[in-house]
Amino acid sequence: MNPHLLFRLAVDAVLAVCVLFGLWYIALPVGAIALFRFPYFMELTAAGFAYDALFGMNASSGNMSFIAAYAGTLSTAGISLAVAAIKGSVR
């Protein structure tokens, strides 16, 4: 198998474990680095969405604001867009 694909799968596994056990402070830096390393690294945004599905998404019950309910999705999407802009300007 392609070593680059293997490395990307390994990073995806690390992100999945971090989401499962709430280790967002590890997932975000790993994901930010992976965004620079790999093209179209949407796994980070998917991980943020999964984190919200597991622990957030409470906006419908009125207990938390939309931003808090989707904090994972919004933060990872924001990081992805920021890294994409930086990559576009330096490459």
Partner: peptide, 13 residues
């Protein structure tokens, strides 16, 4: 299965 601080927002799973 999950409790704060792993599960945020003062929730348990």
């Amino acid at each position: 299965l999950a409790r704060p601080p792993i599960a945020p927002y003062d929730e348990l799973v």
